[in-house]
Design a protein around this nucleic acid. Sequence first.
DNA 1: GTGAAAGCGCTAACAT
DNA 2: ATGTTAGCGCTTTCAC
Lengths: 397, 397
Amino acid sequence: MPARASERPSILQIAQQAGVSSATVSRAFSRPELVHAETLARIQAVARRAGFRPNRIGRSLRSGSTRTIGLILPTLSNPVFAECFEGAERYARESGYSIMLTVTNYDPARESKAVRDLLDHQVEGLLLTVTDAARSKVLASLRDTGRPYVLLYNESIHHPYVSVDNRAAARDMLDHLYALGHRRVAIVTGPLIASDRARLRLQAARVRAAELGMAAIAHWVMPSHIHADARPLATGHREAFILEDTLGRSDIHGAPKVPLYCGGQTQAARSRFFRTALTAPEAPTALFCSNDRLAASLIACLARARIGVPRDVSVCGFDGIEINALFTPALTSVQQPSREIGKRACQLLLTRIQKDSEPRSLSLPHRLLPGGTVAAPPHRDVLFTTRGTHRHAYRPD
Amino acid sequence: MPARASERPSILQIAQQAGVSSATVSRAFSRPELVHAETLARIQAVARRAGFRPNRIGRSLRSGSTRTIGLILPTLSNPVFAECFEGAERYARESGYSIMLTVTNYDPARESKAVRDLLDHQVEGLLLTVTDAARSKVLASLRDTGRPYVLLYNESIHHPYVSVDNRAAARDMLDHLYALGHRRVAIVTGPLIASDRARLRLQAARVRAAELGMAAIAHWVMPSHIHADARPLATGHREAFILEDTLGRSDIHGAPKVPLYCGGQTQAARSRFFRTALTAPEAPTALFCSNDRLAASLIACLARARIGVPRDVSVCGFDGIEINALFTPALTSVQQPSREIGKRACQLLLTRIQKDSEPRSLSLPHRLLPGGTVAAPPHRDVLFTTRGTHRHAYRPD
DNA sequence: GTGAAAGCGCTAACAT
DNA sequence: ATGTTAGCGCTTTCAC
């Protein structure tokens, strides 16, 4: 019967009851092979009876090692990060490490505070996704502390990271759209385009569009309340987004940098916007969303405006979360190996912690997952007019 | 410029540089109002320059308080738990507490290990969801330690919890189905029916069906690979599930307790199963799934078998996760306030920690969220035969 | 308002 | 194989 919390025994009481020194009890738990079998058994018996387990705070203070790592993610509502967490957590647990986790909701102030808090807890390393690695003050100071850390999803030339090649992934999606006949594509993001990944993808997509001789890519911004973890757009949003290269170089492509704000606060206003924007002469035939949640929301939004996907417009996302396959039609996306990103980042981090090795980065392969939401562009003259059975309804056809 | 990790200064060096004792530096950080303004400023200046922040391991050891709580969840891939985490984490963070998180994948052995590990880390309390609260050995021993803890989602008469009233929620869904004309309902679960919530809902649904004069509720078990976080069914699955009342009473209702295993490993086998099972004379007209992810998988599965929802069969879930609204048609479900469950549980826990108060439980209100996947039952003679435009396709009608 | 001193629970260096 | 000793970084009396 274990003792109650208030009476939790220390190593000294166990030592006395077992008739040995505290050092021997310590060895019995941390390096049992150094202790005589009989002594070990006696200590274990006493410890079990008393409900004793070594206090890791004491151990951490003395040994200087907490066997704990910190994890900082924007949110867990997005399955991308939830899966990444699970990959990292599993690897950490199997390596004997515990995880302290906090979320930032894409707020740089929270990112800074989280880093400080976790360092105060003496985590041995940090795994984190920041909104914008290039502009993050806290990342620079984290590097200066000498504590190992690895970025998740943020590609950066100044910090170790594990990610996919966002530019290549965006290019692949553009190629896919081009191959199907699309020549006018818009990129759709939430108001959180401060995210460096989204910017990287947008920029690479624009370069690729130019290379392929496609029309310049427009940038549409969805209002925040469609996208759960978004903050409101600042007023004057048309000026709010100066898209820059996250890796520090300037955007060399001459495409328009001013985003177009999509619709207002009401469903009716958004429906009007989409019906107008998608029937204009130079309207995009495909909408490339910066992530899958946004893509799913957008499709629902278009459905309410009676705009069919992919019949009237093609839609694709980014992330390749598992739920995509359960939509009808399945969402076309670029899959990131999120679990693997978490796992490999944790592996890199633990290597750095244990061997004090050089920081390294890793680009993991992405995969284009074709779904049913992207098809050849429709002829303009049948847009919004023809009626018929939808190929992808739930019911038998 | 902060010092590198190896040279991280201690309170003593700061004291020396500031010309005060270590006690004063300590006060400057933990109770600054006790320190003279000038002294405080001097200490802060020195600390900033040296990059000093108090080591929380030292503080925890001395003060006996880590300001950390442990969180144990089955998985974060299910948005129910991800949202719950966010609710708890936010409340904890705003109260000055950090969180150590681990997942168990519904494995009781991992649950036990997680509790031990977190207690070793001297967490001040524990928030956890276990597979089966009534049978959990580790919960009983956790209670004996005297450490505060609150269960999430597990309703239990022996432990404090925050949950919805699972029986009432299941009854409400049965009433909803009944009102629409359904008289034969099957419950569909993953192989993880070891979950006490799912058992509670199944049992309450059976009782309600009897009260309403409906046919006895059958229990279908989906094979594991449809449901991401499931482990394989043991062989002899037909005998594997003896459904018992989680709260300790026996199941008084005489409905069949042996579940029916749905289909095999291939899509073709499952399609065959569903087409047969749903056209039988006494076939269910509605399928009540134990959670929303399962319901979404099932609908996709039925679609592949060319069985329309809700045209040929109605389907509903449990949890009310946000993504439900993005399916077409939207998934009918019972909503649990997951974020609120996390928040309130954390609140209860911190109260217990800070005031050493009595353990209390909380039943939060659920809400039936009608979607498009439940409709009046079809006439048997039109089942699988009529063709036509689906009301809920993405494209305009 | 500040300092001196003790010690939280443990481990590591050294001694035997 | 085990004991002795010192001390990790901090907080907390208790004194002044």
